[in-house]
Amino acid sequence: MPETPDSDLDFTPEVSAETDIARLGHSSPPPAHEQTADEDADVVDWGRVAAMDEFKALVKAKAAFVVPATLFFVVYYFALPVLVGWFPELMEKRVGPVNLAYLFALSQFFMAWGVAFVYLRQASKFDDRQNAIIAKLDLAKGGKSK
Protein backbone atom coordinates (compact mmCIF):
# COMPACT_ATOMS: atom_id res chain seq x y z
CA MET A 1 0.00 0.00 0.00
CA PRO A 2 1.45 3.39 -0.93
CA GLU A 3 2.06 5.77 1.91
CA THR A 4 -0.29 8.64 2.26
CA PRO A 5 1.89 11.72 2.67
CA ASP A 6 1.08 13.99 5.56
CA SER A 7 0.17 17.22 3.87
CA ASP A 8 1.66 19.28 6.71
CA LEU A 9 5.09 17.70 6.46
CA ASP A 10 5.31 17.02 2.75
CA PHE A 11 6.86 20.03 1.02
CA THR A 12 6.75 18.67 -2.49
CA PRO A 13 4.37 20.74 -4.59
CA GLU A 14 0.88 19.42 -5.03
CA VAL A 15 0.37 17.30 -8.10
CA SER A 16 -1.74 18.97 -10.76
CA ALA A 17 -5.40 18.41 -10.34
CA GLU A 18 -7.06 15.93 -12.63
CA THR A 19 -9.53 18.63 -13.41
CA ASP A 20 -8.47 21.69 -15.26
CA ILE A 21 -9.40 24.18 -12.58
CA ALA A 22 -6.15 24.36 -10.68
CA ARG A 23 -2.93 23.17 -12.14
CA LEU A 24 -0.36 23.53 -9.47
CA GLY A 25 3.24 22.52 -9.48
CA HIS A 26 3.98 22.70 -13.18
CA SER A 27 6.16 25.35 -14.69
CA SER A 28 5.55 24.38 -18.30
CA PRO A 29 2.23 25.27 -19.88
CA PRO A 30 -0.23 22.35 -20.11
CA PRO A 31 -0.70 20.67 -23.49
CA ALA A 32 -3.22 22.32 -25.82
CA HIS A 33 -6.06 19.93 -25.06
CA GLU A 34 -5.77 20.54 -21.34
CA GLN A 35 -5.74 24.31 -21.54
CA THR A 36 -8.70 26.18 -20.26
CA ALA A 37 -10.07 29.34 -21.76
CA ASP A 38 -8.35 31.30 -18.99
CA GLU A 39 -4.93 29.88 -19.79
CA ASP A 40 -5.44 30.78 -23.40
CA ALA A 41 -6.23 34.35 -22.45
CA ASP A 42 -2.96 35.92 -23.45
CA VAL A 43 -2.53 33.77 -26.54
CA VAL A 44 -4.51 36.08 -28.72
CA ASP A 45 -4.45 39.85 -28.66
CA TRP A 46 -8.22 40.16 -28.37
CA GLY A 47 -8.25 43.89 -28.99
CA ARG A 48 -6.29 43.48 -32.19
CA VAL A 49 -8.68 40.86 -33.56
CA ALA A 50 -11.70 42.92 -32.56
CA ALA A 51 -10.27 45.88 -34.45
CA MET A 52 -9.64 43.93 -37.66
CA ASP A 53 -11.85 45.01 -40.55
CA GLU A 54 -12.46 41.36 -41.49
CA PHE A 55 -13.65 40.61 -37.97
CA LYS A 56 -15.98 43.60 -37.82
CA ALA A 57 -17.39 42.63 -41.21
CA LEU A 58 -17.95 39.05 -40.02
CA VAL A 59 -19.84 40.15 -36.91
CA LYS A 60 -21.92 42.49 -39.06
CA ALA A 61 -22.66 39.78 -41.62
CA LYS A 62 -23.77 37.38 -38.88
CA ALA A 63 -26.12 40.00 -37.42
CA ALA A 64 -27.42 40.76 -40.91
CA PHE A 65 -28.52 37.16 -41.17
CA VAL A 66 -29.52 36.28 -37.61
CA VAL A 67 -31.65 39.37 -36.85
CA PRO A 68 -33.98 39.16 -39.88
CA ALA A 69 -34.13 35.35 -39.61
CA THR A 70 -35.16 35.59 -35.95
CA LEU A 71 -37.75 38.26 -36.69
CA PHE A 72 -39.12 36.13 -39.53
CA PHE A 73 -39.59 32.97 -37.49
CA VAL A 74 -41.01 34.82 -34.48
CA VAL A 75 -43.61 36.58 -36.65
CA TYR A 76 -44.43 33.38 -38.55
CA TYR A 77 -44.79 31.38 -35.35
CA PHE A 78 -46.93 33.88 -33.45
CA ALA A 79 -49.19 34.28 -36.48
CA LEU A 80 -50.50 30.80 -35.58
CA PRO A 81 -51.99 31.57 -32.13
CA VAL A 82 -53.17 34.99 -33.35
CA LEU A 83 -54.99 33.60 -36.41
CA VAL A 84 -56.37 30.54 -34.62
CA GLY A 85 -57.35 32.55 -31.55
CA TRP A 86 -59.06 35.55 -33.09
CA PHE A 87 -59.94 34.42 -36.63
CA PRO A 88 -61.25 30.87 -36.14
CA GLU A 89 -63.72 31.11 -39.05
CA LEU A 90 -60.90 31.79 -41.50
CA MET A 91 -58.78 28.98 -40.11
CA GLU A 92 -61.62 26.43 -40.23
CA LYS A 93 -61.79 26.70 -44.03
CA ARG A 94 -61.40 23.23 -45.60
CA VAL A 95 -58.34 22.58 -47.73
CA GLY A 96 -58.44 19.08 -49.23
CA PRO A 97 -58.91 16.54 -46.43
CA VAL A 98 -57.82 19.01 -43.71
CA ASN A 99 -58.40 22.65 -42.78
CA LEU A 100 -56.30 25.80 -42.95
CA ALA A 101 -55.52 25.69 -39.20
CA TYR A 102 -53.93 22.24 -39.47
CA LEU A 103 -52.02 23.12 -42.63
CA PHE A 104 -50.65 26.30 -41.09
CA ALA A 105 -49.57 24.44 -37.93
CA LEU A 106 -47.91 21.76 -40.08
CA SER A 107 -46.19 24.42 -42.17
CA GLN A 108 -44.47 25.66 -38.99
CA PHE A 109 -42.37 22.48 -38.94
CA PHE A 110 -41.23 22.99 -42.51
CA MET A 111 -40.61 26.69 -41.82
CA ALA A 112 -38.34 25.76 -38.89
CA TRP A 113 -36.46 23.16 -40.92
CA GLY A 114 -36.17 25.61 -43.82
CA VAL A 115 -34.69 28.38 -41.67
CA ALA A 116 -32.28 25.87 -40.12
CA PHE A 117 -31.20 24.67 -43.58
CA VAL A 118 -30.61 28.20 -44.89
CA TYR A 119 -28.69 29.04 -41.72
CA LEU A 120 -26.46 25.96 -42.11
CA ARG A 121 -25.46 27.07 -45.59
CA GLN A 122 -24.88 30.63 -44.45
CA ALA A 123 -22.91 29.52 -41.41
CA SER A 124 -20.45 27.52 -43.49
CA LYS A 125 -19.57 30.80 -45.25
CA PHE A 126 -19.08 32.41 -41.82
CA ASP A 127 -16.78 29.49 -40.95
CA ASP A 128 -14.61 30.21 -43.99
CA ARG A 129 -14.31 33.86 -43.07
CA GLN A 130 -13.54 32.97 -39.47
CA ASN A 131 -10.77 30.60 -40.59
CA ALA A 132 -9.32 33.30 -42.83
CA ILE A 133 -9.15 35.65 -39.84
CA ILE A 134 -7.44 33.02 -37.70
CA ALA A 135 -4.96 32.23 -40.49
CA LYS A 136 -4.12 35.91 -40.75
CA LEU A 137 -3.27 36.09 -37.04
CA ASP A 138 -0.36 33.72 -37.60
CA LEU A 139 -0.45 32.58 -33.99
CA ALA A 140 2.95 32.01 -32.44
CA LYS A 141 1.88 29.00 -30.41
CA GLY A 142 0.52 27.21 -33.46
CA GLY A 143 -2.07 24.49 -33.11
CA LYS A 144 -4.15 26.58 -30.71
CA SER A 145 -6.93 27.15 -33.13
CA LYS A 146 -6.01 24.71 -35.91
Binding site: V44, V49, A50, F55, Q130, I134, S145
Partner: peptide, 9 residues
Amino acid sequence: TVRANTGLG
Protein backbone atom coordinates in the same frame (compact mmCIF):
# COMPACT_ATOMS: atom_id res chain seq x y z
CA THR B 1 -16.99 38.90 -28.86
CA VAL B 2 -13.84 37.52 -30.47
CA ARG B 3 -14.10 34.27 -28.52
CA ALA B 4 -17.82 33.84 -29.29
CA ASN B 5 -17.41 34.55 -32.99
CA THR B 6 -14.14 32.80 -33.79
CA GLY B 7 -13.79 29.99 -31.27
CA LEU B 8 -10.27 31.20 -30.46
CA GLY B 9 -9.30 29.88 -27.06
